[in-house]
Design a protein around this nucleic acid. Structure first.
Lengths: 223, 223
DNA sequence: AGTGAAAGTGAGTAATCACTCACTCATTCG
DNA sequence: CGAATGAGTGAGTGATTACTCACTTTCACT
């Protein structure tokens, strides 16, 4: 059920995704208003009446383009999954494996963290909605895990094992190393966007990334 | 506004908290049903009619005890803030600073991670609601940050600086070290409860914690 | 200029929402 | 025993919900 529900609802959705150029003005404004309201108040707390008002559109117009409110949520959210999945898989697969295979690990990690911070900064509201609604909608949660996460993990595992064999990484379990790399990134993102925006801002992104990569590679203990 | 809103709504709430013994049977069942539904579907998607049905109670009974639905949410959530804040501040302040001041850092961290994993495992639904609703309700978000987080940070900063002076920790910025310690913990929790429960379960909690502390202290790189 | 299709509208609908209130029942206390 | 108190009830409230549909407007193409 949930597997096919995911493939039917999300994959179908991604296929049918119009790019912005072939939308009408009003349709674009509906998406924009939904983005704003969903991010601010959440999906269930945002009514279609409010969305229509915010978009300067009749309520009926929403349902002309999206057959239900949930459809509208998916339309807002799906492009981000594509945006996140595609750069991760398409761009970084090249960056990490081809260009950077000879580069030092610290540089690869720095580039990765920089790239992810930028991507999230540029899509803050979308990410917000994605995380919020992943709590409730299994389709979204599963889409995130099975599309983005699993692929990232697969790529990372390969890289980690290569570097382990090359003696650059300690002989630790691959998935533990992966967890640590991801944890550091998530922590960095949380500090920047949630818990301590001002404290974070005392250092530049570059400094924060450099610190994080350094601690990740060499630990916090003195030897 | 938000400062006083926090103090008025949450602090007042915590003061008025009845413990379970002085609740009626029905009141306990209302809280229990709310916990279940809020955790499963979220606050806005759970109706008071549904809560009443789940609790086996008339809808009016809910409003006899809680003057609004939001009041009910706070009643479900507040005890967790107290549970989390109190053990963190009261118990761990002793554990970390008095008993463990002479212990090796690895042991202190291990004890801390073990303790937090247990606490979260025992309150999974509450934590879930707390995080979900922190997205939308500023009072909850601010309560978490200003009560729990700030205090934890203050305590951790002290510990970190002591260990830095003792030469056990590298001379890194305190808040960067704090971020790393917390990131590792959050990552561990996410892997256990969200992304990879099965993968995680291949190793015992103790092993996972030991791995995490090891990577945190000494890094993932070979030297 | 005329036609067909798509875009847009907004009043209307049944369902559901959080919440109220007049009431009953059980318990306690003087 | 009688009065007072508070828990519990469920039908009823107006507001709001997502969604529909008969209709008008816009516009591309002949």
């Amino acid at each position: 059920m949930s597997r096919s529900s995911f493939e039917e609802s999300l994959m179908q959705f991604v296929e049918e995704l119009k790019d912005e150029s072939e939308m009408t003005e009003k349709q674009r404004r509906i998406l924009q208003a939904s983005l704003k309201l969903f991010a601010a108040k959440g999906f269930h707390a945002s009514s279609t009446a409010e969305i229509a008002r915010e978009a300067g559109v009749a309520e009926g117009t929403i349902f002309r383009h999206y057959k239900s409110k949930k459809d509208l949520l998916l339309a807002v959210v799906a492009p981000v999954l594509v945006k996140f999945a595609a750069p991760f898989i398409l761009k970084d697969v090249r960056v990490i494996f081809q260009e950077q295979a000879k580069k030092p690990l610290a540089e690869v990690l720095t580039e990765l963290y920089r790239n992810r911070l930028e991507l999230i900064g540029a899509n803050e509201k979308h990410v917000r909605i994605l995380l919020q609604e992943a709590f409730f909608h299994e389709e979204i949660r599963e889409a995130m895990l099975s599309t983005v996460y699993q692929e990232v993990k697969r790529l990372a595992a390969k890289l980690i094992e290569e570097r382990k064999e090359a003696g650059e990484l300690r002989p630790l379990p691959t998935e533990a190393v992966f967890r640590m790399v991801l944890s550091s990134l998530v922590g960095l993102i949380l500090f920047k966007h949630v818990t301590e925006p001002e404290e974070y801002a005392k250092r530049s992104d570059e400094e924060q990334i450099a610190l994080t990569v350094d601690m990740l590679l060499y630990g916090i203990a003195n030897r």
